[in-house]
Design a protein around this nucleic acid. Structure first.
Lengths: 149, 149
DNA sequence: CAAATATATATGTATATACATATATTGTAA
DNA sequence: TTACAATATATGTATATACATATATATTTG
């Protein structure tokens, strides 16, 4: 459902104005879909983001600050996300020996297992953008990168 | 700051996968900027969305359900947004005489005044997409509409 | 060496949505 | 006419970010 169909409005001030609304709208659609996709796994898209960053670091501990830098939304509250994941035994969190202000966060085996289960299904979810060709996806990415420079 | 610069990652599985992250990222950037822009006016972007819909209806009362249909995020909780705006005296909310389940929501003079103040400044905010040409904005809109079909 | 400053994280409070339930009213069917 | 179903909205609880403050630790400065 396009932006116009969704909000039942056809006239926008100009293409730039429409673009801003369209980006908020399109990003929101994907996020809502992600939330629905992750629901059976009992984690949020943001928690998934954290787990993915931790898996990428393999066994190397990650600080709360580093996590936050790597989050898709850099204003995410990494502290709270980690606390929730700890409650679910998907991560561990320990004081860093070198700097006791810092925390060492690592993914657990359960966390890795969960990501494996999700990996098996996520392609189906990611299909939602495949009505655009690869060339069109590339164009969109280039324009978004230019927009965000 | 592009997606890659932001999350410090250059490799994506493919252009489609990158696109999904890029859309979430780009939409989030705009929303965060909107939140900052509206902060001095003491309303949220979602409350602004409600006021704009009400202004568009002029003096015609709007039901909670109709509001919700017109919201940019159709999963918005229109009830609560209206309640907050009522507390700020920016809208009125009365029982509909024809159907007492429904509420009639209207914008107040104070609400209209606030929108006028915002209108005077919002062009500066909307400039954030003008590093794309009109043709590029149009292309992006077309691709986003195709994506969301 | 101690005080001041900076850093890292946790937590408080407010708002927004996700998902669910409750309540009141209207419409429909028997 | 009444019971049932549907509709409209409000509210509860959980999670996430926005913005702020608090606490502990490390670094810097005098």
């Amino acid at each position: 459902m396009t932006l116009q169909e969704s909000i039942k409005q056809n006239k926008f001030k100009d293409e730039h104005h429409k673009l801003m609304l369209n980006l908020i709208y399109s990003g929101g659609l994907i996020q809502a879909e992600q939330t629905r996709f992750f629901k059976p796994y009992e984690i949020s898209p943001q928690q998934y983001n954290v787990l993915r960053i931790l898996r990428g670091q393999q066994t190397k501990p990650v600080s709360i600050g580093l996590l936050q830098e790597r989050m898709l939304d850099q204003m995410s509250n990494a502290s709270r996300l980690v606390e929730k994941l700890k409650q679910k035994a998907l991560v561990t969190r320990n004081e860093c020996k070198q700097d006791r202000r810092q925390m060492d966060v690592c993914i657990t085996k359960a966390g890795l297992n969960l990501l494996e289960q999700i990996d098996a299904k996520i392609e189906a979810f990611e299909k939602r953008v495949t009505n655009l060709s690869k060339a069109e996806a590339k164009t969109l990415n280039e324009l978004l990168d230019k927009l965000n420079t």
